[in-house]
Amino acid sequence: MSYEHLIVERHGPVGWLINDRPEVRNAMNSAMRDEFAEAWTELDNDPAVRVIVHTGNGRDFQTGVDVGEVASDGVGMERYRQSMEDFDVHFTSWHQGVWKPVITAVNGICCGGGFHWVADSDIVIAASDAQFFDPHTSVGQVVAIEAIGLMKKMPVEAVMRMAFLGRHERVGAERAYELGMISEIVDPPERLRERGQELGEIVARNSPAAMAATKKALWGALETGLTDACKQGARHLVSMWGHPDQAEGPLAFAERRDPDWQSL
């Protein structure tokens, strides 16, 4: 499929999904929203892709919904409202049930709806000049889904503060790192994609099937309490028993070579 507002690339085992509306800071219009659903599924279904890295073209990563476009195209706003009311949304890897590892590489500004992709990915790195803020309340909007996702994953006070201070305060890459929202700052910022590719290639050395089952166990744990999460995690753990990768891993280790994993 060809995309108008996204770029989908493959570099070795790493699939890239790049926001490509730099003239509007990669804000998401209706067409881009539909393309996200397609792009995640395309990369998830490609057996050659073992890891997905998501970033943005231009100065900024993502700045949420392109409200102007969605409000003015006649159908966009009604459709958008309906999908949110039903929580029938398909623009992040989590929404789409992608069980390959997803790395978000934040360039420049990530604000408002941009947090969806920070909340919903497995590994988040950021350029040293990245900035995070949530302007919803400053323009009379409620923030819910993306902030809820973040609250489950990091200190809640930091999320509430961003939600309430709106556009009047920004969180820098350094503070995001301290809070555990991101795990790595890339400096200089120009190295962000190079580092994203490097990390992707490292993760791609691990068993695709084991990583998929691990993701299911860990993301499933956000839905329930500790003991129930462990019981459900046991199901995912046991699902790998008898898989060829479980023999291949120790064998490759003993033979001091790279494992030859089964594709998903």
Partner: peptide, 10 residues
Amino acid sequence: HVSVGQVSAF
């Protein structure tokens, strides 16, 4: 775990 084909869960 995932480097030797095992799931990380508990």
